[in-house]
Computed example of a mutant assay.
Amino acid sequence: MADTPSPITLITGGSRGLGRNAALHLGRAGHDLILTYRSNQGEAEATATELQALGRRFAVLPLDVGDSASFPAFAGRVREVLAGWHRQSFDHLVNNAGIGLHVPFAETTAAQLDEMYRIHFKGPYLLTQALLPLIADGGRILNVSSGLTRFSVPGSSAYAAMKGAIEVLTRYQARELGERRISVNTLAPGAIETDFSGGMVRDNPEVNAWIASQTALGRVGLPDDIGGVVAALLSPDTHWINAQRIEASGGMFV
């Protein structure tokens, strides 16, 4: 009997932060990975080296999720990677790439709002469209949102609003892609110690302590807290979870 092929997962923004941690968790779980990076090829190659040490196949591709005109060409590169692995499709898409913005509502500019829209809503929307022909029937899509869609922290209106739109989109994707048995869920992390938003949560002791005081489990989240959830949500045991928002925040503001 032929061996079952390893699942292939594509993670946008997979070279650093939560994307990198998720890639390593998935690599340890037996996934082969296609990772994207926007500008720091060195970080991407370092992550690839770690995956290689795990014995996994990997590819690292440049992608700016804010540039939707580049998506057809990117899909072509993904197709080439798959052909080199003797596959016609991949199994899981994790829409993770993004940037932060901390500006009061009254001071948010049109340019900032447009940037949030391009990166956090238009990008995942159109990229998923472009990759749909390459996603296997019975596959998974995981859209990364934020705890900020449930609770409000001043200065996050534009970022959180786009993540809220992604959560609505997730339900529509689950409904419309159900005929292909593709499940679609949202993962909403709470505050995590990474370099996101300039490392504000990780490097500012006052911010870190305040978040810990508002979290039921008494500390700020770590990348491993999220990477493990991604691996769990893409495991065979969780295939029946669909159209759901899963928050992983340690119980912030409960």
Rank of each mutant, 00 (worst) to 15 (best):
A136C: 03
W85M: 14
D225P: 14
M162F: 01
V78C: 09
L127D: 04
G76S: 15
I211Q: 10
G66L: 14
P5R: 05
H120E: 03
A174I: 04
Q244Y: 05
R20H: 12
F71Q: 03
G190F: 01
E115M: 06
G13D: 06
I11F: 07
P189R: 07
M200G: 11
A191I: 03
T47P: 00
I99D: 10
V65T: 15
F105D: 02
Q88H: 11
R38G: 13
D225C: 12
Q41F: 12
L177A: 11
G30Q: 14
H120C: 08
L113A: 07
F253K: 05
D32G: 09
E45I: 05
R87G: 02
V220M: 09
T4V: 12
T215A: 07
N242G: 14
V103Q: 00
M252I: 04
F196R: 07
G42W: 13
T4H: 07
L113N: 06
S146A: 11
I246R: 04
M162Q: 11
V220T: 05
L234C: 13
E107V: 02
R87C: 04
S213C: 03
I246K: 08
I99W: 03
L93V: 03
G42Q: 15
A2R: 13
A46Q: 13
I8P: 02
P236M: 05
A48F: 14
A111K: 12
R150H: 07
Y37F: 07
F74K: 00
L35G: 09
N185E: 09
D3I: 13
V78W: 05
P5N: 01
R245G: 08
N204G: 02
V201R: 05
A59T: 09
P72Q: 12
A136E: 11
T47N: 13
T36W: 01
R57M: 09
S183L: 10
T170M: 14
D114N: 15
L131R: 08
R140E: 15
R175Q: 15
A188C: 02
A188R: 04
P205Q: 10
E193R: 08
H239D: 14
A191M: 05
A69C: 13
P154D: 04
A191K: 05
A243W: 03
L35N: 08
N204D: 15
F90G: 01
G164R: 00
F58W: 15
L35Q: 10
S145H: 07
N242F: 12
F121L: 11
I11Q: 09
H102Q: 14
